Every structure is written in C-alpha cells, then in structure tokens.
Amino acid sequence: MKPGIEWRQPRASAETQQFAADLHAALSRAPKSISPKYFYDETGSRLFERICDLPEYYPTRTELALLRTHAADMASHFGPRAQLVEYGAGALLKVRLLLDALPRESVQFVPVDISGPHLLAACDGLAGDYAGLAIQPLVADFTRPHTLPQCPAGSRRIGFFPGSSIGNFTPAEADAFLRLAAAELRGGGLLIGIDLVKDHDVLHAAYNDADGVTAAFNLNLLERARRELGAEFPQDGFEHLAFYNPAYRRIEMHLRATRPLDLQLGGEIYGFHEGETLHTEHSHKYTIAGFQAMAARAGFQPGAVWTDPKQWFALLWLKASST
C-alpha cells in the first residue's frame, strides 16, 4: 500500500467477508489456489449459463438429453412423495425435467445455492411455470453445515446434484460431501451427474471455447474481487489457462500472470512472477465403477446408471441407508 493512503474496508456481508478471508488465504499459500465457488456471483452465474450453451461444452447438452430420455425412470426411484433438494441449484433448468415426471402435489422442492439473488430470481421463474409447486429456497454453501427445511411427513428426502459439479471437489472434499449427503438424505437417495474419462482433445475444447466465454468466466473471479473487495491489479495482468492433467484425471483452470505484478488486497500486497498462477478450479473425470466405489465408502448403495451412447457422461442413482 502506498504511503499516506488509508485503506478502508467496505461494509460487507458475511459472504463478502468470507470471500476476502479465503482470497487472502489463497494468495498466501504456495501454490496459490481458491475454491471455484467464488465464480458464482451474478455476473459469473450468467456467464456459466452461456458456457452451458456453447457447442464445445458437451456436459450440459449430454446430461439434458439423458434427463429428457430417462426422467420418468429416474423419478420412479424417488418414492410416492419427495422433498427434492438440489445442491448448487443455479438456474433451475435441469430440475424441470424431473419435476415434469413427478406429480406436483407430491413434491416439496428445496433448491440450495450460494448466489442468493440468482437463486431467488430463478425460483420466481420456476414458480410462475409450476403453479402449486411448494418451493423453499435455501441460500447457503451446501458444502458447509446448513439446515434444510423439515422433510414433510410421509416424504423421502432426495438429493439432485447435476452438472458434474462433484468433479470440482478434491477427492477428500468429494468424500466429505458424499458423507454429508448420505447423512442428510438418510432413507432417500441421491441422483448425481458425473463427467466420464474421455479423449483429451474433447476435454480441452470444452474449457477453451472459441468465443472466450470460459476465459471471461475465469477472469471474473478477480474482477469480482476488484468490485467487492477493492482489490487492485493491472487490468491485463492475468490470462485464462485451462488444460488436462492426466496424472489426476482432471481439467485444471488457472489465472496466469502475464508479467511480474502485484495484487493488492485489504492493505496486503501479493506478488506474482511471470507465469505464476492462481488455481481457480479443477474438474475431475471419473469412471462409473470408480465413482460408485467412492459413494459406497461414503454410505451409499449404488443403483441404476444412465449414460449416453458415447459414454461421455453419466447420471447415477445412489440409495442412502435408512440407518
């Protein structure tokens, strides 16, 4: 910080304060890395919706095709009445295909997402299209302790976690989430999407689209830090980097410094050398058998599997023990 300049922390919500604390921690460690959950402010959420429509980004259209074809079969595993909990709910597009396969009066829908304004706007749209559907949105980080609405009498609690978002977790984080979900969904089950191991060129294209939307999505994380936290760094100081790391079976996304630079945050200065990165996301790719084994260790009983003809993506039904 320059001499004579007093830094004033803006009044901040608890979420903004947590973002600041986590970004300080990310910039202090070596190598630098931060959770991808901070992509999803209003701008980031809109950019991700655009990514889902890109020709290179196969996961969304493949998963949607599976849901359109098999939603009734998937819903048959839920039981006659359900509290349907969508983790990381976002725009609430995919869940509509499940809701269309369920009697409306038999479902209470609980979408959970960290981006409050985006979630509530999506819920307004859903309520307009699904008159009579009981919707109880929960603004929360579903990977942290949270309290779901009480499950209605006679209903089973069913989790829905589409989009292969589980791949954004480290193996330890994925195990922790599955254990949390197994306890939270006791007596019900989890319908979860996973991205499967495939040709590296297909993966590279999906995260390096020709229109640069994924790059803008990645770069928005630091732009969010500029807007919300007063972070200072050169406007063209970082570039998008995404590649497949075969050792970990994952795509990695980074923000790479284009030259030696300083990033100032809350009175602290964090230096980057040219080419140094802030690791913003990884997306693990699974085999069906490998993921089922991980789910079983966490307390689920693997069940039905739905996948596409190319074996690029899968939706798995995992039954949660009642004990």
Rank of each mutant, 00 (worst) to 15 (best):
R186D: 09
F300E: 11
D41R: 03
P137M: 00
L190S: 08
L261Q: 15
F169V: 06
L93K: 09
L66F: 06
F238M: 01
G266R: 04
R156Y: 12
D22T: 05
A172Y: 13
L263E: 13
A298M: 08
Y207V: 10
F272M: 05
K2W: 13
D141H: 11
L92I: 03
Q136L: 02
A181P: 12
A210K: 12
C52L: 12
H273C: 10
L222G: 04
A206W: 08
P80N: 14
R68E: 10
L98S: 09
W317I: 10
L93Y: 08
A205D: 10
E6H: 15
P111Y: 04
C123G: 07
A293T: 11
L316Y: 05
Y207K: 04
H200P: 03
A26Q: 05
P152E: 08
L92Q: 03
G271M: 01
E184Y: 04
K310T: 14
H254K: 02
V202C: 10
T147Q: 13
V305W: 05
A216M: 02
H146F: 15
N168T: 04
Q18E: 14
T170Y: 11
C52S: 14
V107F: 05
A140P: 12
I34R: 05
V139G: 03
Q18P: 05
G163Q: 01
D262M: 07
A182D: 09
R249K: 00
L27V: 03
F78W: 13
G116Q: 13
L222V: 08
H204S: 06
F272W: 07
R8Q: 15
A65M: 06
D211L: 14
I166V: 15
G44C: 06
K37R: 08
D195A: 01
M294D: 08
A320M: 12
E232I: 15
S106V: 00
